[in-house]
Design a protein around this nucleic acid. Structure first.
Lengths: 331, 331
DNA sequence: TTGTATGCGTTATCAA
DNA sequence: TTGATAACGCATACAA
């Protein structure tokens, strides 16, 4: 790869002038032309390592998510990518697996790599930014908030979504509605189950039963096990609000295994799976604007990178209840 | 962030010695101890920009895929990530959207960023490595081969998979089996449809009808449209082999729209969707070992990065026919 | 074994 | 407007 020295030699100017052309500062027209000519002849493009070293920050954004195989997060990633790339930044996708150690590793990486900023879903409420913590580093939290430092955040209306999902089950005629939510130390879990609780309270002749509330792990098997436990109760629920998409899959699996259909058992799932639509599960789905979340997060981050010093901002995006799908495909 | 100079000062050694400790060369035990002490006290970690600039290559691997929202590729990514990270490399996920321009942009990025290597799924048979083309650059192709330069490749047994899928439809009693495959200029598409063709030939009283072969785009809508076109034929097929997962979704959608069930219309899909299993589509699915593909690709790449100069290698992994799923969930 | 000094390819400072 | 030159933080050739 050519360097600016070779370009300079060819254009018969100094390396400094080449750099100025590259960065768009005061250079006379004829020299600009000569330099551009030389650049294209040599097929030169600036070495990003050297540039980053000198500038003290790179054009890379780290996106730390807990599960790359969860479609919700890949859609978020897509949203981030679209916005970031348009601004000349590239995105490194980092999979924390929901573990604090992995998360710390990637935050470390972001720091020692002088990355431009970090967009992350903190693994738990105990997550901290570690060495990436610094006033002039750009950070945006997605879906959940970290403890410790105040940062920009992009959230969904978790409480309202939990409320709406539960209510839709009541509207469908179910009365004993249980709730399967995520880990108790994750803010998102708690808010969603609070929504469920409130919807139960709002129901005239019903009080929320605490043994109808189950904490699981936001994963398929956890959701399945939780439903199984609910069936073991004296008075089993006749419907369930599930607080994320993957646990929803587990619930549907368990129902299948028991030979129960969604026409007889109410299921409302918070969070879509792409390609869900064609399968006609009969579940009510509360759609989260994943891609939009990513886009907004990227926008906030870019503003911080550009030097914005306003106090931390929080954007709350809205979920949307999709009608329960008809069972069309299968017989 | 601390530098090796600060560490050196604190440990009362020279910067060079600190560097040697970092890179594991000859340093006396006591100095090693002092340096390590200083490193941990200062919470030092080496600046990767500087290191990469000096070493002339970074610890980053680019993974270029055509669709981040296709679960097949996220599983591949997961496999790559696991292996790469264990070796101290991080992975940048790049979305080419199947477009040559995007692909070229990312290859350029990889070059100007001195990335350690590239694992990619070429957008089409016309794809080239561009400026990343260089004898000492590590490259592994996944799923398809690029034109031009010979590189290591990790493929699946496309032809055999297409054959097996088609055959399973015959075994289920269908006789007029069509094929919906991907773009004609993508090697994978062609091989899969060849498998279909051969299976048809092998069938005693049947010749492959060329109007039963449709080229689409590996996307949901394309699959749907192709099936629609097949239905418009004089003698419409009674079963279809679909050459990738997303087009499979499209096919199932179209069937749904027409009120046709998979008990009356045979569907075999090459490529799984995670969480397909719980939905009971009635389709036969040919599972591709996505995660393993990623892992093997990463292993090959790491060997190249380490300096292996053997001629290009090709690893072929095997697909697996899963039994058609029963229709359990819905009524 | 250890230290000094140089360069990796940029950008920014300072003079001209 | 331009050019020479000094960093950025590290790894290594060479000297000691």
């Amino acid at each position: 790869m050519a360097t600016i020295y070779e370009v300079a030699a060819r254009a018969e100017v100094s390396p400094a002038t080449v750099s100025r052309v590259l960065n768009g500062t005061n250079v006379s027209e004829d020299k600009v032309a000569r330099v551009k000519q030389a650049i294209s002849e040599l097929d030169f493009s600036p070495n990003r390592m050297a540039r980053s070293l000198r500038r003290q920050h790179s054009q890379i954004i780290a996106l730390i998510i807990p599960d790359i195989e969860n479609p919700f997060f890949t859609s978020v990633a897509r949203g981030v990518e679209d916005v970031a790339q348009a601004a000349g930044y590239s995105v490194v996708l980092c999979n924390s697996d929901g573990e604090l150690s992995q998360e710390a590793y990637y935050l470390d990486l972001a720091a020692s790599d002088n990355m431009a900023g970090v967009i992350w879903t903190p693994a738990s409420a105990a997550s901290t930014l570690g060495r990436f913590h610094s006033p002039d580093r750009a950070v945006v939290a997605i879906d959940r908030r970290p403890s410790g430092r105040e940062t920009d955040a992009v959230l969904v209306d978790n409480h309202r979504a939990g409320f709406a999902a539960t209510q839709s089950l009541f509207n469908q005629g179910y009365s004993r509605v249980a709730c399967i939510t995520g880990p108790a130390d994750v803010e998102t879990s708690v808010l969603r189950s609070e929504g469920w609780r409130e919807a139960c309270r709002a129901h005239p002749d019903l009080q929320p039963r605490e043994d109808y509330l189950r904490y699981a792990d936001f994963r398929v098997d956890g959701g399945r096990a939780a439903l199984s436990a609910l069936f073991a109760l004296d008075l089993a629920p006749d419907a369930v609000f599930v607080a994320n998409n993957l646990m929803g899959v587990g619930v549907l699996q368990e129902l299948t295994a028991r030979g129960i259909t969604t026409s007889h058992y109410g299921v409302a799932i918070l969070g879509d799976l792409p390609y869900f639509s064609f399968t006609a599960t009969g579940a009510t789905v509360i759609d989260l604007p994943a891609r939009e979340i990513g886009g907004v997060a990227a926008r906030l981050l870019l503003e911080r990178i550009a030097g914005l010093t306003d106090p931390p901002r929080t954007e709350v995006l809205h979920s949307r209840v999709l009608p329960a799908q008809a069972n069309v495909i299968s017989r």
